[in-house]
């Protein structure tokens, strides 16, 4: 079934305590190549049928009104997951 992906990130000006904690853990495991981490979230909305413009518009509205809180977060991506990307994520 087709899937719409919504990515939400904390606003740049909002401190991200979780990302900071992850950034602190990386070098302890030997991952020294990263200066900082910010943690967001990804939603996968499965569509029963075809992804029409109307369904995409609904996804964008849901992303703004429910999936994110505009005071602290930005919706950075709303996109249809392509077949190839879907297969890739399943085999990964």
């Amino acid at each position: 079934m087709p899937t719409i992906v919504v990515d939400v990130m904390p606003k740049p000006e909002i401190l991200d305590p979780q990302g900071k904690a992850i950034a602190g853990a990386l070098p302890r495991l030997g991952f020294t190549g990263f200066a900082s981490v910010r943690q967001g979230r990804r939603f996968e909305l499965t569509v029963d049928g075809e992804v029409t413009e109307d369904v995409l518009a609904q996804a964008r509205k849901a992303a703004e009104e429910l999936l994110s809180n505009p005071v602290i977060e930005d919706v950075v991506n709303v996109a249809v997951l392509t077949e190839s990307a879907q297969n890739e994520s399943q085999s990964a």
Binding site: I14, L15, P17, Q18, A21, V71, I72
Partner: peptide
């Protein structure tokens, strides 16, 4: 109440986690 927009602002995790 902040999620309802009855009050402004929002809450995130404690600075100390």
């Amino acid at each position: 109440l902040t999620e309802s927009h009855l009050l402004p602002g929002s809450m995130i995790k404690n600075e100390s986690l």
